[in-house]
């Protein structure tokens, strides 16, 4: 039994964290989020150079990168590509997303779209950006070309599981960032002559976020490993990880906004972008409740 990332994976994490902090500090992320596109069109070439899109990456490597992408709110369709579209497309070389009910997250930022059992060139579709809550993962309405266009693909059975495990990891990154921002803030913000982190009402809520984060992290890594190893428990592991990590991210961001007080409620402050990403993750392809319903079916039958 060994529950640790390899040394290479730890180096991958450290370099990803550094690169994101350097390339996309939060004020730049804010500018991109408030801009017309909601992503940086130059990012993809850099991700390719960094090796984030290599075929050789295992799922637990991608787990590390998706977590860091969540931590830094990487303004590029990286997670949609590797987590949602790549299993059907067959590679992560070109930015890609999937169409659900005529809508695709990052739909205007990608070159390929997976719609049912087909992969189509985005350039062959009519794509209209729509107002979205998460302005760094904007939806676009996709009108597909005639029915037989594009390449037909068969989705691999573990595509859903890969997506679930990686989104859980992204949620863990979001929660960690919300926690880090909160800890830094409550250590320096003073009210009534004391830093507010010395009040138990604040400190204990921040501790609760840490607890939920670490529990969700364990489940997310377990899920990624289970899918990678083809473990028989992979399906319930992913359901557990998705439900817990989604809820932890929402709780972590809400606690962060509350602990920041008024400033945390402003558009200027970065927190709302993490909160909206947490909401996007929780809304995608089945709520926490529906994940638990799957687990209940495994425990009790239908």
């Amino acid at each position: 039994m060994d529950f640790a990332f390899s040394e290479e994976q730890q180096m991958l994490r450290a370099s990803a964290r550094d690169w994101l902090a350097d390339r996309y500090p939060l004020d730049r992320v804010a500018a991109i989020s408030d801009g017309d596109l909601g992503y940086d069109p130059d990012a993809w070439a850099e991700l390719t150079k960094l090796g984030w899109l290599d075929e050789s990456l295992e799922l637990t490597d991608l787990a590390v990168l998706c977590e860091e992408a969540g931590y830094g709110l990487l303004p590029a369709p990286f997670v949609t590509t590797v987590a949602l579209a790549a299993p059907a497309v067959g590679s992560a070389e070109r930015p890609a997303s999937v169409v659900h009910d005529g809508l695709a997250p990052d739909g205007a930022a990608v070159e390929l779209l997976v719609a049912g059992a087909r992969v189509v060139e985005a350039s062959a579709c009519t794509i209209t950006a729509v107002d979205s809550v998460d302005r760094l993962r904007r939806y676009a309405r996709v009108e597909l070309p005639e029915a037989d266009a594009g390449e037909s693909v068969t989705s691999t059975p573990d595509a859903q599981l890969r997506a679930g495990a990686l989104l859980a990891c992204e949620a863990v990154g979001v929660t960690q960032r919300a926690l880090d921002l909160t800890v830094a803030y409550v250590k320096q913000r003073e009210q009534f002559g004391r830093v507010i982190g010395s009040y138990q009402a604040i400190a204990h809520r921040v501790s609760d976020v840490y607890v939920q984060l670490e529990l969700a992290r364990s489940l997310a890594y377990w899920a990624a490993w289970s899918v990678e190893a083809g473990d028989p428990q992979a399906e319930v592991a992913v359901a557990a990880a998705r439900s817990a990590a989604g809820e932890a991210a929402l709780f972590g961001c809400e606690a962060a906004i509350q602990s920041h007080g008024g400033i945390g409620f402003t558009w200027e402050h970065p927190l709302h972008r993490f909160y909206k990403r947490a909401q996007w993750i929780s809304s995608w392809s089945g709520s926490a409740t529906s994940q638990r319903a799957q687990i209940a079916t495994a425990l009790f039958g239908d």
Binding site: F3, S218, Y221, S243, A244, A296
Partner: peptide
């Protein structure tokens, strides 16, 4: 009740794997 029980199953796995970590 199925939802609440499934939540407990999730909480158990979270404890188990946090402990492994």
């Amino acid at each position: 009740q199925r939802d609440r029980i499934a939540r407990h199953w999730v909480e158990l796995q979270a404890l188990r794997y946090t402990n492994y970590r």
